[in-house]
């Protein structure tokens, strides 16, 4: 195996509070740190750990197409690995959630025989569970990118919460680096959802706080009333469960029957 190495880490949503000890240590030990951390406090923190920083954000200026931008970022990260350096790539949030260049870089590095690892980080989803006091272990969870959800036939489980990410670009098929919501996309998304949920169904528009001690944005309103003005580039749409899940009598009975005598019987409500 060649000497170059890639470790991809996340800063979480608030830096440095959310960064893991493991990620921090990798950044400190890296020969070169590529990063896409957008806030000045986060960048200051990274600089305090390692002075050899390379900002990937300028790739946005080199093309107006996001796919090309992400490919350019991945290539730049790989350049350091190919120089046989211990490279760390740092992304905002969880480095593998809604982040394309991290996956591209790891895949290509492995293909070229380099050691490449991704470490978990605090994602917006983690924050949503905390801020909305939701346990996905209770009713399950459905997560989709909003435009993907709009453009695909999805079997929605109305008994589990549904979370639609990146509402800020729903229906934006330009794939441009200029993030903007599409009025048509939002209209169609609401039409699609209102085929399954009542028009007046209360949903939540959610945005994670990214400054310490600030409150997250949690705005409740009827599905039919969501407007473009409610949405910005980081807004997430959360729909609670609409109907209770039906008990599966057959499997519940089977479970009871086959359970060893003396064990507690099935207690699914």
């Amino acid at each position: 195996m060649p000497d170059g190495r890639l470790t991809v880490v996340g800063t979480g949503l608030i830096t440095p509070q959310h960064i893991t000890q493991e990620a921090k240590r990798h950044i400190e030990l890296a020969d070169r740190v590529y990063h896409l951390v957008p806030d000045p406090l986060g960048i200051s923190f990274l600089r305090s750990l390692n002075s050899n920083l390379v900002y990937l954000g300028d790739c946005y200026q080199k093309t107006d197409n996001r796919a090309k931008t992400y490919s350019m970022m991945a290539q730049r990260i790989l350049q350091g690995v190919r120089e046989e350096l211990n490279v760390v790539a740092v992304f905002y949030g969880h480095p593998g959630v809604f982040v394309s260049p991290s996956h591209q870089a790891i895949k290509q590095a492995r293909k070229e025989g380099y050691d490449a690892t991704m470490l978990p980080g605090v994602s917006a989803e983690s924050c949503l569970y905390a801020d909305l006091d939701i346990d996905p272990g209770k009713l399950g969870a459905q997560n989709y990118e909003a435009t993907y959800f709009l453009c695909h036939k999805i079997n929605i489980n109305l008994s589990a919460p549904l979370t639609l990410w990146q509402l800020g670009v729903v229906g934006d098929l330009s794939f441009s680096t200029k993030i903007k919501p599409s009025a048509t996309g939002l209209y169609l998304l609401k039409q699609k959802l209102m085929k399954h949920y009542p028009d007046t169904f209360e949903v939540i528009l959610y945005e994670t706080a990214i400054i310490p001690a600030f409150a997250p944005r949690i705005k409740r309103k009827p599905l039919e009333d969501i407007q473009l003005d409610d949405i910005n580039e980081v807004t997430t749409l959360y729909l609670p469960e609409y109907i209770a899940a039906q008990k599966d009598d057959y499997f519940c009975t089977e479970l009871e029957t086959k359970t060893n005598q003396g064990e507690k019987s099935c207690q699914i409500n």
Partner: peptide, 22 residues
């Protein structure tokens, strides 16, 4: 606050590294 602290270099200012709906 971000503007005040000098965040004027990132056109996509938060975790919006977007996947295309393919």
């Amino acid at each position: 606050i971000r503007r005040k602290l000098g965040d004027d270099e990132s056109p996509i200012s938060t975790n919006s590294i977007v996947h295309k709906a393919e």
